[in-house]
Design a protein around this nucleic acid. Structure first.
Lengths: 233, 233
DNA sequence: GTCTCTTGGTAACCCCGGTTACCGCTTTAT
DNA sequence: ATAAAGCGGTAACCGGGGTTACCAAGAGAC
């Protein structure tokens, strides 16, 4: 499968699963792993929540969204994936053999899937970096768990102001400026925070009227940082 | 550290970190890992949210609670630990070097901590089972992530009836009988579901009045399973 | 025994935020 | 260019559930 290596060298090099593995070794390992690349169109499902999971997913091209549907049928955005990102990593190595969430293509996508035993098992050729895969996975899954922890933090905030403030503060810290672009549209942001879209609009406008923030479309400006921080309580 | 092995053989054998490692090998590995055992009294903190994390925790004796405090100061119960359970596993192998939650002793406890490099690094003695530790960790952390996913599912249910129903149904499935004992007191259950305690009482009583459930203290009986299931929506 | 602490049921109040519906603006398709 | 779809602000309505406060029943402690 040298084709995979040459055609998607960049996303693979960026993939955290292969972190610390140099080009030549990566080529050897890919032959060893021998994954099958599949193509998807916009809005097509790379995986469906509840379906049997036979391997860890690696996104080579395009953008996809991890979406969780709860018992009430409400959709909650879990993550947005880009080229080189992996998905299904939590379920692949645990007891449950089902997809805990769905992955939907946001545009045309290409991806491949790796059965977990290809990562944890000893490969016949004894690739020197094979062991590296396991420790990489350990780190990836740990980070994932930590991100979920963060998600729980958001969800346990009871008031909407609190959620909005926590979200804006995180974006502010991530982007480093008091004026920044929201990475999500209103309905996506509402979905992420698990609130109703009109309620979100209403509350954000109130906060604007009170002089705490200012915004225009996706451009947002924090005017009163301290007030924002105190909102979380 | 043979003392550790002989004194806590049972909890260590039950510990998922050492799953698949037989007694003799375990003894050798413990000498290699050389952990320091620490004691705690009831209500003492084994770890404090936000503090620097220097290692993965292993509970040898007693019972402890993993508690997360959000920005609003509300406490949310994340898990209850028993002898042989580990904690801090998510944070230990990720980038963040801080405890994402606190661990509080529910009674007198004993525990030890293992720096992550002792698990992922090559040990000088080349213990045959050392590699096993890493794959065990991978599975443990994956399960953890999946459990957090479950937690997120609870939290994304908007109505209180839905939360109560989901919780009772899970207990019902776990305990296998329509009549069972709730593992949490009312205030703990309220904390777990992230709702106010009086509101929980009120709603449970309504459900009783409607003939869906019946209860007395911690003993609860599901009278109308179908009705309960339909509540989640 | 009585005192105190914990646990859990109850009721009144009222606010936050979900629901619905509508409208104007922007983007994309044909 | 015009239609169609998506996005986001606004307003009225009202109910779920948070808050507070009080009380009753157990559970230890002494």
């Amino acid at each position: 499968m040298i084709k995979i290596f040459t055609e998607w060298e960049r996303p693979l090099a960026a993939c955290r699963l292969f972190a610390g593995v140099n080009g030549e070794e990566l080529k050897v390992m890919l032959e060893c792993l021998n994954p099958a690349v599949r193509s998807y169109r916009k809005d097509e499902y790379l995986s469906v929540q509840g379906d049997d999971l036979y391997g860890l997913g690696v996104l080579l091209e395009g953008e996809a969204m991890v979406v969780k549907e709860n018992a009430a049928g409400e959709r909650v955005i879990m993550a947005v994936l880009g080229a080189g990102d992996i998905f299904g990593e939590t379920a692949a190595f645990s007891r449950a053999g089902k997809w805990p969430a769905s992955v939907v293509a946001q545009g045309d996508c290409k991806a491949f899937f790796l059965p977990p035993h290809k990562i944890t098992g000893n490969c016949q050729r004894q690739c020197p970096s094979h062991r590296r895969l396991i420790t990489n996975m350990l780190r990836i899954v740990s980070d994932k768990a930590l991100a979920l922890n963060k998600k729980v933090e958001y969800l346990t905030i009871r008031s909407m102001r609190g959620k909005i403030s926590a979200f804006l503060l995180e974006q502010y810290e991530k982007q480093g400026s008091a004026t920044f672009i929201l990475p999500l549209k209103r309905n996506e942001m509402a979905e992420f925070l698990n609130v109703a879209r009109p309620s979100l609009s209403r509350e954000m406008c109130r906060m604007r009227d009170e002089g705490i923030i200012d915004f225009h479309q996706s451009t947002i400006k924090i005017k009163d940082l301290e007030a924002l921080k105190s909102m979380i309580e």
